[in-house]
Design a protein around this nucleic acid. Sequence first.
DNA 1: GATTCGCGTGAAAACGTTATCACGCCATGG
DNA 2: CCATGGCGTGATAACGTTTTCACGCGAATC
Lengths: 371, 371
Amino acid sequence: MTKKRPRAHAPRRPAAGRTATIKRVADHARVSIATVSRAFADPQAVSPELRLRVEEAARTLNYQPSRAARALRSGTSRAVGVVIPDLENPFFTAVVRGIDIVLQAAGYTLLLASANEDTARERNVLETLRAEGVAGIIFVPINATRDAYRHVLAPPLHTVVIDRLPSNLRADHVTVDNVEGTRAGVTHLLDLGHRDVALLSGPLRHSTAKEREQGYEQALRAAGVPLRADLVYRGDFREGGGYDGMRTLLALPRRPTAVLVANNLMTLGAFRALHEARVRIPDEVALVGFDDMPWATSLNPPLTAIGQPSQEIGSAAADLLLGRIAHPDRTFRHVMLETTLVVRASSGTAVRPPRTRPAAGPHHRRAPVTS
Amino acid sequence: MTKKRPRAHAPRRPAAGRTATIKRVADHARVSIATVSRAFADPQAVSPELRLRVEEAARTLNYQPSRAARALRSGTSRAVGVVIPDLENPFFTAVVRGIDIVLQAAGYTLLLASANEDTARERNVLETLRAEGVAGIIFVPINATRDAYRHVLAPPLHTVVIDRLPSNLRADHVTVDNVEGTRAGVTHLLDLGHRDVALLSGPLRHSTAKEREQGYEQALRAAGVPLRADLVYRGDFREGGGYDGMRTLLALPRRPTAVLVANNLMTLGAFRALHEARVRIPDEVALVGFDDMPWATSLNPPLTAIGQPSQEIGSAAADLLLGRIAHPDRTFRHVMLETTLVVRASSGTAVRPPRTRPAAGPHHRRAPVTS
DNA sequence: GATTCGCGTGAAAACGTTATCACGCCATGG
DNA sequence: CCATGGCGTGATAACGTTTTCACGCGAATC
């Protein structure tokens, strides 16, 4: 069971004829491996002369530090996990693109996972990412309560939340001003003379749905238009929900003359329902959709939309995460971005410029607010 | 420079109050770490009694093997890189979804990167994935020649190519039957009585564009309709290309009465151009698009489309990759999937069932062909 | 009844890093 | 002049696995 003399083991070839290890660089530069490591991690800690030798050796040998070894030893990897509810919703993919750009530039790798709108799957995926040893996670939560995410918040892992914010969750997060966006959209319809303005909303457990309803109510109140409960339909934020909702509205004894749809997929469903019923847009029903999408101009008529700076939402989230990795103890930040009303034909001929803020130029970002 | 006595080093806490290491499991089960490792890697190599003890210990300690250590030691990780040209093209995201599902089930992690249709970026991204030590790469190449990808093919890395196949590239790959798909689409238009059928195609360096043109020509030839060179427009497979192409076609002295658009984004552009010019679809111009998209039914009129089994393309690719990881030396395989013509209003009232193969049921996949 | 074989197990090397400690050196201060 | 301190460098432990080798043991073989 015990024995004395040392053994000679057959070393396994590493991954392949792969490139240099830190040791080969060290030999080539005639320094120790510690110096090589330092030359990369903290360049000014090593004398200029040696640093140069190391850099050159690394270049000629085409040295790429092993991420696995680095992760194993330091316990942290340069990878960031991104979890979205649905890969096929273009809003989310645009957000991911924004994240990707920032992360790429910072030398991080992006691990993407889709939860497919499934709570169990989301949990599973978050666990995997954590086991994978990512440096942080950016995600769009499905659930509305913090409890579902307690395990994600465990210290070594940094978290940034996008779009929907679970109640009581303390974390950096990025949202858009849903209240103001919707208010602007509804006000636009009111300005065009509509009085029976309906709202196709989503599940109230989503903060976005709640906020968009608030914006809707604010706009009506400000215009002195009484709220009609039957004009608010709550769908599921999916295509079918928009379809069903629009059909319900069309069947009302007093049909709305304008509808604001609170989500991009539902907008598609609403369009389908209107076309099917041969209702003319915008003459019989004017339409405004939340979320500007690539296909908005190809719809017939082109869609008036409340655009979110999707890509910028992603970049902001990535910035937030990188900032927190650098300063783990700073207070949580909440970045809120503005929406932009893009007026096209589906809301009717614009008789005057929309009553939102004057075109704000390229800057949408509001000053960060510490929550 | 040299010294004799051993040193006591302060051990760094690993990633955090993280869970058990293999050592703790071993202690708890009163076996060696080797046995624990074996109990997972090759269960039948360890006696049932010990295996049970190990399994129980792992469960109570909530043991998750460190991926980093595993990757470092074995030189291969359970991660797969996926590279697509554009994150915001729903065709690609649907493919990714298919990949994701298979990979997830097999316990692999998906590293997604978008090349943003940029060759340099693509190269960069592939390098990163290789450095990351992924077990394999599934990708939709931007370039048409093998040379651009020679570095990816280096042995330890397995590659599966999707959609477009660079010439001379020897690798597993998955495509759809573009020739047959287009042929069916054009034939459908011919069956409806059209004779001036145009094609909005893409860059010929893409194998997909070439094949779709072939299908177009085959259909015309089969119907005895002479080819008109001015009816084939080659765009860039982006929205703008479809818009420009359609405008060009509309400006022809002898305008086509039907158009097949060879790509989803170009279809959106074509719709926009038609709406702008107030051309009635399908009365003045009938339309068929390659690629069925979620929004196809929301267009006005709903789009007749040549659908690709996008998600299935992804699963097939993932299957291929897993197969190759298991059997590195098997011959390369080429899986070709069928398309499905979905007739909607944009091609005009279907006076008779389309002349494609009879509805094939849920099975699209053709028997794999070794290339 | 001695040899061979196979099987299950444990000890320990190795993977490629990072981070700690110790050491030699030179400058500084008493 | 000697003690103190800082700085640059090298040697090396440690991270948590996988995998090789050796060993003990019981069964099969001659």
